[in-house]
Write a protein that binds this DNA or RNA. Structure first.
Lengths: 134, 134
DNA sequence: CGGAATCCAGCCTGATACTG
DNA sequence: CAGTATCAGGCTGGATTCCG
């Protein structure tokens, strides 16, 4: 990381704009809804309320925010059909689809290692319990 | 996703424990410090304050929490040497290293697509500005 | 239907101070 | 050195209401 730009050694490394950008994207992927929305759109183009029903449990506000963020970064294309009633469609762009690939790899890793992780958790938590029992 | 367990169709899909677990891990990866800590430990085993200096800008509390979470999931091994002064070493486990792989793929994608994303952002923001100018 | 605006509770984060 | 405890502030996410 930290491309060799001109950051002073006194400053901590990750104020670097590129690092911040990576961190930012990781946060977006890590947020509660982004992956779910992308997953829904990976299958097909959807309208706002279709998407809302498809994801399930998301508020309009969060759906709007998530979609705006994705649109701003060029992951999602928003198409407005000026009819009555209005019809707004959301679709993944090529960039969005290309992001989905490494993300799904990560999701795959998680599924594969879920049992291991849970086993560690239980061991760790039991150790904690007996430690505080003392 | 959503393994065919026994969730009622009335409930939204992602209350499913496996989905929650994936979402949880995505959040961990997406949080401000995890990747930085893992990256630091990928190079070498480090003591608490070495790690703190290496990451830069992290508070002891956040470092402690991040390490505890990683340890709980079995990503990081914590070794206490009961000497005076105390010496505690942190190292990546095999699981931690195996996680680093797909995560680094994602980081790589981000770097590769940073220019594209920024271009989209500027276009989007300019469009917003002139929209609100009206 | 597809939002925007507002309000509010809760969590996350960081700074600081204290302990073994 | 390696933490824990406490507190304050900001951001996140949800509910509600209103508009085109």
């Amino acid at each position: 990381m930290t491309a060799p730009s001109d950051h002073p050694p006194s400053d901590h490394p990750h104020a670097n704009p590129d690092c911040r950008a990576v961190s930012e994207l990781l946060s977006r992927v890590g947020d509660k809804w982004t992956v779910l929305v992308v997953e829904a759109l990976a299958e097909e183009t959807l309208r706002f309320n279709e998407l809302k029903r498809h994801v399930g449990g998301i508020s309009q506000q969060m759906l709007t925010r998530t979609l705006r963020a994705l649109e701003r970064d060029g992951m999602v294309a928003r198409t407005v059909h000026p009819t009555i009633p209005p019809r707004v469609e959301y679709a993944l762009t090529d960039l969005g689809r290309s992001l989905a690939e490494p993300v799904m790899a990560l999701v795959g890793w998680t599924f594969a290692n879920l049992p291991t992780i849970h086993a560690h958790r239980e061991t760790f938590d039991r150790a904690q319990d007996e430690a505080e029992a003392a």
